[in-house]
């Protein structure tokens, strides 16, 4: 686990958990996300990724599909089964562009799907789309509170 990358960014755009068994990929993604202003947390296996989520609050999970022991799809299944974690958007990363993986990802409620090689622009746009939805979600929570509490309502 390392959460150093991105700490120097003036304003954090969001916390991203990168889960990939390839240390090179983790290194490149972390550095790139950090430079772009995201705060990055990483894990080198599905199990350690799930472990990290016990203590870390993240906005988006970048999840590699092809990993030994617990693959990305299994991680997704476990996330979906966890009441606390099931709402975190998952972006699947994979070199495997086969229909089966995509179809299973879709069935598991994956938010996005990116095929390696990953394009920077596309990666950032997809992350930002999920962060935008999270921001809307937070705003709606505030609205919901205001509606529930009549004293906060002005008209």
């Amino acid at each position: 686990m390392n959460s150093a990358a991105g700490n120097n960014a003036a304003q954090a755009k969001g916390r991203i958990l990168v889960v990939d068994d390839d240390p090179n990929a983790v290194e490149i993604l972390s550095r790139m996300l950090g430079r772009e202003g995201y705060t990055c947390v990483s894990a080198s296996s599905g199990a350690s990724g799930l472990d990290a989520l016990k203590s870390e609050l993240v906005d988006v999970i970048l999840l590699d599909v092809m990993m030994p022991e617990m693959d990305g799809l299994e991680v997704c299944e476990r996330l979906r089964a966890d009441e606390k974690l099931r709402r975190i958007p998952v972006i699947l990363l994979t070199a495997k562009d086969d229909m089966e993986t995509r179809s299973r990802g879709m069935a598991l409620g994956v938010s996005e799907y990116l095929t390696k090689p990953i394009n920077r622009r596309e990666l950032f746009t997809r992350i930002d789309a999920q962060l935008h939805a999270r921001a809307i979600d937070r705003q709606l929570s505030k609205t919901a509170e205001a509606v529930a509490d009549p004293s906060k309502k002005s008209s």
């Binding site: 879709m106 409620g109 999920q130 939805a133 205001a146």
Partner: peptide
């Protein structure tokens, strides 16, 4: 007074 924002479909693909 009550703001409601609906996210576009591509932000809630599921």
């Amino acid at each position: 007074v009550i703001p409601i924002t609906v996210p576009p479909l591509r932000e809630r693909r599921s």
